[in-house]
Design a protein around this nucleic acid. Structure first.
Lengths: 336, 336
DNA sequence: GTCTTCGTGTAGAACGTTCTCCATTGGTAG
DNA sequence: CTACCAATGGAGAACGTTCTACACGAAGAC
């Protein structure tokens, strides 16, 4: 099978030097003459040599970074991934994605698998696990956590300022004249803290209080169905809200469907706002008011922090990205 | 860094046996007594030993399967991935995804990287490369190609019957009374053959011919913008089509936007159909008529074929999945 | 001239597995 | 009682790298 593989020994033989010398050239290490450099690179090119990452793993780097995805379906992830790969495009690092699933158990299995494959570092996107578990992982390998607030000392964190994002939405809706504004959030089974939806819900509560309004939070799930069912419940009430702020755009899409089915027109009868500003939100047919997180920047920042940490930084860093509100057609003045 | 790692030697010491014996137990190999089995598994549990995949790579399996994604943004991929992981869930194999990008160059780089990391097998989703390149990869490691027609002998293939899918759409539109039906396809820069969009376009042509109608294919790209610009061009014509069949749902969404901006109502002035039946297509607000591929089945089939091939099958297999047409609100009778 | 020092190259031991022999044991056929 | 065999466990060589020593020569300092 691997019969055809060109090894470092082949290159060394061809160039008439030792394998150690070839290794130095490949790694750009100290102590190589210009002549040696030339000889070896020529041999490498002639033979088409590529270092065997798995073999490297046993001694040094693998030049592999892992990104654990908690939910492959979330349309917001591609932005982050693109940010990561763009940032890493001209480096030697390769990015591999691990579908971790929604369950804490499967996520733990995936991170273990990544560590077992000696990845040089891990980016965990909205991981659902305790701080203790997170710290345990971070002692085994450099870690950057995306989307969880209150990061610990052992790892870096990149977060969206979710409190601010929620406030932007509430301020906007109140500015339009709404007073009965409900919030749909995600119900978490695990004991993880500082997850985006929790913080968004808290930001929503704070903002409502600041305006002297009563808050109303309903927990379903961040899926189209979750948004649909949550909205159906809210809209069935006698004093139904005039605006619904969903903690994620996918859920907001479900809210829109519920409004359609209930025969309510948006935004006249009901204003709807989401969070994440996913691609579809900008489609004329949807035109969803949403909070934009700039996933590209988040991904690029995570990649930068991870490489820094791999290359020696030990002091922990938390980077916060400010969201912006994108006002579109699903929010407007309530009927008097 | 890796100081804390429990190795096979630790387990062997603890159980009072040789490392070779532990290896046998771990792999479930032949020649282990019940007693040995018990001793070793106990030691493994006590120490929390997990085999180091990178070290394994040097001699045997890595139990890692790679899935190369040609485009992370395509909302159809999560279905395939879920099919793969579901199928592999209770096996020892781990799935890692490689964002290969749209460029042939970056895709080649990614497949190389996966081979260098000694993955046991690769699933390539709509790879953009020549058959020769594909065959070269397939000689290095087991390969299953998803979404490319006309697979070669060196690898397995899972394809959607795109000719049939295109015919379903055309038949449906003709049945409604349309005669001027245009098709938007994806313009390929590379010399790859048998890609889905090519086959869909060909299926469209065949079906139109079968109905005695003139075909009209416009090549832009399978993106929202691609669909938008293509539709804008088509709708600016004097004898503009009464129906547009986009080769992918994302492009169809762009077509809808173009229709909105042109002040055309759907489906009265323009019928629109897509391909892939992505999640959003079923939203009331979109309600896009589309061809459903059952990505879950495709992914699961690909995973099954790959494992079979890894475990010894050499005869090449091509599995074809039949699509179904999901009729929704964006298609209807043309104005007389 | 001898002693350092520096720059360059190499030998050879890791790294954590798997896998091919080989040795030992106990049982059974003759 | 011998000869053979099957079943089990172990020794030790791979696998393809990196990395720590160290050797060697040239150049400079005294």
């Amino acid at each position: 099978m691997t019969s055809g593989r060109v090894t470092i020994a082949d290159v060394a033989r061809r160039a008439g030097v030792s394998t150690a010398a070839v290794s130095k050239v490949v790694r750009g290490a100290y102590g190589v003459s210009a002549e040696m450099q030339a000889k070896v690179t020529q041999a490498i090119d002639e033979l088409g040599y590529r270092p065997h990452a798995a073999a490297r793993a046993l001694r040094g780097r693998t030049y592999t970074l892992g990104v654990m995805l908690s939910d492959t379906r979330n349309p917001f992830f591609p932005d982050i991934i693109e940010g990561v790969t763009d940032r890493l495009g001209d480096t030697e690092y390769q990015v591999l994605l691990g579908p971790g699933g929604i369950e804490p158990k499967t996520q733990a299995r995936m991170t273990d698998a990544m560590i077992d494959r000696s990845m040089d570092g891990l980016i965990l996107i909205s991981p659902v696990m305790t701080d203790a578990e997170l710290t345990a992982i971070a002692t085994a390998t450099p870690v950057v956590v995306v989307g969880r607030h209150g990061g610990a000392a052992a790892y870096d964190a990149v977060v969206d300022d979710d409190v601010m994002g929620a406030r932007l939405v509430v301020d906007h809706l109140v500015g339009l004249g709404h007073t009965r504004i409900s919030h749909i959030t995600h119900l978490e089974r695990a004991r993880a803290q500082g997850l985006p939806h929790t913080v968004r819900a808290e930001g929503y509560r704070q903002a409502m209080r600041a305006h002297g309004l009563a808050d109303d939070v309903l927990a379903t799930s961040f899926t189209e169905v979750g948004g649909f069912e949550g909205a159906r419940e809210l809209l069935a009430r006698a004093d139904r809200p005039t605006a619904i702020f969903a903690g994620a755009d996918i859920a907001a899409l479900g809210v829109l469907r519920a409004a359609d089915e209930a025969g309510l027109s948006v935004p006249e009868d009901l204003s709807v706002a989401g969070y994440d500003n996913i691609g579809i939100a900008s489609l004329k047919r949807i035109s969803l008011t949403s909070v934009d997180q700039d996933g590209h920047v988040i991904g690029a920042t995570a990649a930068r922090l991870l490489v820094e940490r791999i290359e020696g930084r030990t002091r922990s860093v938390t980077s916060s990205v400010s969201p912006t509100l994108i006002v579109r057609g699903t929010t407007g003045r309530p009927r008097p």
